[in-house]
């Protein structure tokens, strides 16, 4: 109860300082929020590209339907495979005429359909990796009636290299930003502790327990962190709305990320405050 009263009283006594602490926390976390927004949208973009990763197996002409059916059954046994789709010679021709109109007449003039039938194999999300793709391709190539199995090897390798670089960069930059935010929060709360050094001195003078001295500062730190987190959330949402309305369509970060951000603000505030008050109590 004392801790709550003192934390509220501290705000009343020095509202500008408290607002400044929360503001600094808010701005530090806002940068983290913007970064999260960018990272999340980059992830969505990469996932959309990944969705297009599929294997196309070309079947030799005159392959028996029973052999194809067996292949479809066996390939579905791979845990990496999510679905298969048989494209008949006729379907292939229709698709070619639709997708490649400049060659439309050529297809019509031809008496024999030159396009082979094929099977499109889609993979589960998370299994669209070069290793998983190679495994399925190798298995498909083991069937004698399979003429070829293609998946755009070079393109997939590049995509995954880009993903690895993206992940490493976002992890490092995110950690650095979080650390900067923690340092800023720590500085803000050290100012708050310094502003109340006389009270701390009197508390120790008259025999207050250390836990009693610490508790309002911890609560104040937690409140500053949480308030800063909410402020950062508001600023990030405002930026998201601005970008969505005037620049490009972006997605809002998931609710779980918001929760993690607010919890991080609360923890940063509490821990920074604990460090600041611990240092101060060691000095006086």
């Amino acid at each position: 109860m004392y801790a709550i009263r003192e934390a509220v009283a501290a705000f009343r006594r020095a509202p500008i300082l408290t607002a400044l602490s929360a503001g600094m926390v808010g701005l530090a976390l806002y940068v983290v929020g913007l970064f999260s927004l960018a990272t999340y949208n980059l992830q969505i973009a990469l996932a959309a590209i990944e969705e297009r990763v599929e294997i196309v197996v070309y079947i030799r002409d005159n392959t028996r339907q029973s052999e194809i059916d067996l292949f479809l059954t066996e390939i579905m046994d791979f845990q990496e495979v999510s679905s298969t789709k048989l494209i008949s010679k006729m379907d292939a021709l229709e698709r070619a005429q639709r997708d490649l109109p400049e060659f439309g007449q050529l297809f019509l003039d031809s008496e024999v359909n030159p396009l082979p039938q094929s099977i499109e194999i889609a993979l589960h999300p998370g299994n669209r990796t070069p290793e998983a793709i190679a495994k399925v391709v190798k298995a498909a190539q083991g069937y004698t009636f399979v003429e070829d199995a293609l998946y755009g090897e070079e393109w997939v390798d590049r995509l995954f290299a880009l993903r690895r670089v993206g992940l490493a960069t976002t992890t490092a930059a995110g950690a650095a930003l979080a650390m900067v935010a923690a340092l800023i929060i720590g500085a803000a709360l050290r100012i708050a502790v310094f502003a109340r050094r006389e009270e701390i001195y009197v508390m120790r003078l008259v025999g207050a327990r250390n836990g009693f001295i610490r508790s309002p500062f911890l609560l104040e730190g937690a409140l500053a962190g949480l308030t800063g987190g909410i402020l950062a959330l508001g600023l990030t949402y405002g930026s998201y709305r601005g970008v969505s309305t005037y620049m490009l369509d972006v997605a809002w970060i998931p609710f779980s990320w918001v929760g993690i951000g607010l919890t991080a603000g609360l923890l940063f505030g509490t821990i920074s405050s604990a460090v600041a008050i611990h240092r101060h109590l060691k000095k006086v």
């Binding site: 004392y2 009270e199 025999g207």
Partner: peptide, 24 residues
């Protein structure tokens, strides 16, 4: 003296009582 500025005489004494656990 080392009294807390911005507080009354009563508040200064009450502060010492409060932080050493005297019932409110």
């Amino acid at each position: 003296f080392r009294l807390l500025p911005g507080r009354t005489a009563l508040e200064n004494v009450a502060f010492a009582l409060e932080v050493t656990g005297t019932p409110r």
